[in-house]
Design a protein around this nucleic acid. Structure first.
Length: 623
RNA sequence: GGUUCCAUAGCUCAACCGGAUAGAGCAACGGUUUUCUAAACCGUAGGUUCCAGGUUCGAGUCCUGGUGGGAUCACCA
């Protein structure tokens, strides 16, 4: 029986026999490091039954437990806190089990099927830092679920059609002069992105001209006296600027020449125009080549890729079902809506008056498609928290449609990544490009490694691989160590820092262990676990932390939060470095002590490697 | 304005779902290398956990009300 279970049972017994308490859930906490002991039982809640001072109550329970639980060596009491001290034999036992069995994670998934959607890029722009957080988070979380016994399907929904890609296409057609990734040596996704930017530039210029035209100025005057302008007047905002942003979409739709071209192209695409489809395929092909390279480098992969061009018409049938069942209603113009005011939300459109679908319609359809394809128990969307509302609505709609899978929807909502200068804004050119960023961390890894000069004898390929492992590790760890839910700050200086709570620090710890084990093997020293006579504090810390690791893996899955694993691994690495500094391992005189420490070190190394693999980070043999 | 998320050391983040004296890293200062990799280790300094109430034996954590910030409230995706 697990020690905590035993303690729970015995403590219940103690409470019953001492104070006649029958009910209640018994919980233990890890003893605060400032006090002696391993687990702590808080007696305050039981004082009204015991009718004794906290100290006396704790002591009575402590006596009972010491008497009845073999693993308890002793206890101490501070106010109402009963600190239980477990024997060294118990901890050595734990160590032996861990060493014999390797890392074992309790199976909480039970083979349940989970579809995880992440990445979900648009095909008009290259990936940026925000996408990296998404990809790294999504991939890591899939690894974590798998380790917990879930059957995971990683899926990507590629947004490959729509007005945005048409903008790139028009720009390329008009101003591209036949430029290709080959002819320009520009990575495909960046090339397409270049034309997207080009389009925006030309459009802005056209818009600016119009704004100062007679018609534009007339519209501005109309705007100034309109209702829409009132709130700007209240805020004392610049009305010219306000008009410029307010009217932009209207201008694009009703006045712009290139806007009209884009819209025509989108229509042609929907009508399956051969030429447009060919161009679309060509340019998307470039983007996919580019994305594949980036995904490869990030080390992420997918089991199933959905393309919006195939799924964007889905969901209409379900809109019909919803109309029949009364979940949806039709407005006068023929558009279809759902009323969510009972849930504290608004009315939400699910189909336009012309019968075409909107964003959420597609998601309704895709959810159903996923269910047809996989009959999953749960389906998770790794999407930024800016879409909290969208997924709340999506789930409610699925519920109102009585879909059996509706309850299985979970939005893994992660926070935005901010820069020291503020928010990333593509319009202001402050986005951090994914490929550039990866190059940067890589060259930093190389520079650092070369400065330290410990890689003598390594081949060019080995070095390249090492820089990749260190650089990508640093970047991924930087993004994964903070709580996924929280908005985070990306400081370029910090992200390439290799000291302290960073991947290279942990990787370094791993290589230290690795080199000791290697030396032990070379000199024929046994790394087999031997029970020593004594247990040092630093040794015990390692056992305690390794013992806690599987629970952290469970918690990371339950809380949708890889950072719990990052923290657990960091604590372990830190504890090992302290142990390493305080105690000699390979050179220990006593054979039993040496064997024990070697076995323990090896187990620490395995745990680090295990944890890092769940984060999608590799460990080098040496560095 | 409605809804919603957030606020912890100079900076970036923890704090095991209500427990003890709130912890790390970075930055600053000082120390450690004839011993298994110093990308390491040890020490010093740094806090009214945004504010005001409330619940509780006990609150950074729960509730209410403020203040400040983000997101969202599109027939965009």
């Amino acid at each position: 029986m697990d020690i905590l279970t035993t303690l729970g049972v015995k403590t219940k017994e103690a409470l019953a026999s001492l104070y006649d308490i029958a009910e209640g859930e018994i919980t233990f906490e890890n003893t605060n490091p400032n006090f002696a002991g391993d687990y702590t039982f808080v007696v305050f809640p039981y004082l009204r039954h015991s009718r004794k001072k906290p100290e006396d109550t704790a002591a009575e329970i402590g006596d009972y437990l010491k008497e009845n639980v073999a693993e308890i060596d002793g206890y101490n009491v501070v106010k109402g806190f009963l600190n239980l001290e477990l024997s060294n034999d118990y901890w050595l036992n734990v160590a032996q089990h861990r060493i014999d069995e390797g890392v074992t994670v309790p199976n909480i998934g039970g083979g349940k099927k989970v579809v995880v959607e992440y990445s979900s890029p648009n095909t008009n722009k290259p990936l940026h830092l925000g996408h990296i957080r998404n990809n790294v988070l999504g991939f890591s979380f899939c690894e974590i679920l798998t380790a917990n016994g879930y059957d995971v399907i990683k899926n990507n929904l590629v947004n490959d059609r729509g007005i945005h890609i048409c903008k790139s296409m028009i720009a390329w057609q008009k101003w591209g002069n036949g430029e290709t990734p080959e002819s320009s040596s520009i990575k495909g996704d960046h090339l397409v992105g270049k034309y997207y930017v080009e389009f925006e530039k030309k459009f802005q210029a056209e818009y600016a001209t119009w704004l100062s035209s007679e018609e534009g100025l007339a519209q501005l005057e109309t705007f100034k006296t309109s209702n829409a302008a009132k709130k700007y007047i209240k805020e004392e905002a610049d009305l010219n600027k306000a008009f410029k942003s307010e009217y932009k979409n209207t201008y694009f739709n009703n006045h712009s020449d290139i806007g009209a071209e884009v819209k025509t192209m989108l229509k042609q695409w929907e009508d399956n125009d051969d030429e447009v489809i060919a161009l679309w395929k060509k340019m998307n092909g470039w983007v996919y080549d580019g994305f594949d390279a980036t995904y490869n480098r990030l080390g992420v992969s997918f089991d199933k890729i959905y393309y919006e061009s195939n799924t964007y018409l889905l969901g209409k049938e379900m809109v019909q079902q919803g109309l029949e069942s009364g979940a949806f209603f039709t407005k006068e113009d023929g558009s279809v809506w759902i009323d969510l005011t009972d849930e504290g939300l608004d009315e939400k459109i699910v189909q336009r008056a012309d019968g075409t679908s909107v964003y959420i319609t597609q998601d309704i359809g895709t959810a159903d498609l996923k269910y047809q394809d996989f009959q999953m128990d749960k389906f998770i969307y790794v999407v930024g928290n800016e879409q909290d509302y969208h997924f709340k609505v999506l789930q409610l709609i699925l519920k109102k449609l009585n879909k059996p899978y509706a309850d299985g929807l979970y939005h893994l909502s992660y926070g935005m990544v901010d820069l020291p200068e503020g928010k990333m804004k593509s319009r202001e050119g402050t986005v951090v490009d994914a490929d550039e960023l990866m190059d940067e961390v890589l060259s930093t890894a190389q520079k650092q490694t070369e400065e330290l000069g410990k890689t003598e004898g390594m081949s060019a390929e080995q070095l390249t691989e090492l820089y990749e492992t260190l650089g990508m590790g640093a970047l991924k760890y930087y993004l994964l160590k903070v709580d996924a839910k929280k908005r985070m700050m990306y400081d370029p200086k910090e992200s390439i820092d290799f000291q302290g709570n960073t991947a290279p620090f942990i990787q370094y710890t791993y290589t230290r262990i690795n080199s000791i084990i290697r030396a032990a093997n070379e000199t024929g020293k046994s790394t087999v676990f031997v029970e020593p006579n004594n247990l040092e504090a630093e040794e015990k810390d390692l056992i305690v932390l390794m013992n806690a690791y599987p629970a952290a893996v469970n918690a990371a899955a339950n809380n949708y939060n890889p950072s719990e694993i990052a923290n657990a691994v960091y604590e372990l690495a830190k504890a090992f470095n302290k142990f390493y500094h305080e105690h000699i391992i390979l050179g220990a005189e006593d054979e039993a002590v040496r064997g024990f420490r070697l076995a323990l070190s090896q187990a620490v190394g395995e745990t680090i490697k295990h944890g890092f693999s769940l984060l999608g980070i590799g460990v080098p043999a040496r560095m």
